[in-house]
């Protein structure tokens, strides 16, 4: 087919859906994934005892809020990355505040914890649950996000997938934190980050595979 004819054919096709639909699709995908994750969480783990009382401690609350903030920024970045040549903008600049704040929390806790207790708090008793649980809980959300982003046009599929993985892991970690009784930043700042890193890597691999177009 001559290029001229191709242009004529394409021009004759109906107009595309409105530009906002990518955000709507991503929202729906995230909510659908989140629903699966919440069901999974309630079925297997469930919230800790006295959740409300625990959350009144700001250090414990940070365990839930930090990943939630991360999910918010990473989600915005993932969406931006699904549109060609859209810069990362404000979320790209402020997303770094989350790891910075978590790092600060870690060092604050290092100072506030007695020397003999540091290693105990750092190792905790549940890394073998924490890391796989956050990773698994992130997968339904990741699937929903990736599915939605296929409607976009990510020109860096692995990066977009990683951002989706980061957003999904943030939500998963926030949910998992409602179960987790390890309240020292010496534990959660490290092991949650490890789990989020694993989920982000899975996102990158999934992006490379499913976000190509």
């Amino acid at each position: 087919m001559k290029t001229e004819d191709l242009i004529a054919t394409l021009a004759a096709e109906p107009a595309p859906p409105p530009a906002a639909s990518l955000e709507r699709r991503a929202g729906l995908g995230a909510v659908a994934g989140l629903a699966v994750t919440v069901v999974l969480f309630l079925a297997v783990l469930g919230p800790r005892a006295n959740l409300g009382a625990a959350l009144s401690d700001p250090v414990v609350l940070a365990k839930t809020l930090m990943p939630l903030l991360l999910a918010l920024f990473a989600g915005a970045l993932a969406l931006r990355s699904a549109r060609p040549a859209v810069p990362s903008g404000v979320p790209g600049r402020i997303v770094w505040l989350v790891p910075a704040a978590v790092g600060a929390l870690f060092f604050w806790a290092l100072g506030a914890t007695e020397a003999g207790q540091r290693l105990v708090a750092f190792l905790g008793h549940s890394t073998q649950v924490c890391i796989p649980a956050i990773t698994v809980l992130s997968l339904p959300i990741l699937a929903g996000l990736i599915h939605a982003m296929r409607g976009g046009a990510p020109v860096h599929p692995a990066r977009s997938g990683a951002l989706a993985g980061l957003a999904a892991a943030g939500m998963a970690a926030a949910i998992y934190s409602l179960f987790c009784t390890e309240d020292s930043p010496l534990f959660y700042a490290v092991w949650y980050s490890v789990a989020i890193g694993v989920a982000t890597g899975i996102g990158a691999v999934a992006g490379r595979r499913f976000l190509r177009w």
């Binding site: 530009a19 040549a85 046009a153 020109v155 177009w213």
Partner: peptide
């Protein structure tokens, strides 16, 4: 022609008001 088809398939990812040239080049390069 493949690039033209890609632009066609993904033309909804351009938002009115965004600069078209970088959007177009990104798709073409990809």
């Amino acid at each position: 022609q493949e690039v033209l088809l890609a632009i066609h398939a993904k033309r909804h990812t351009w938002r009115e008001g965004d600069p078209v040239a970088p959007w177009l080049y990104a798709i073409a390069r990809y």
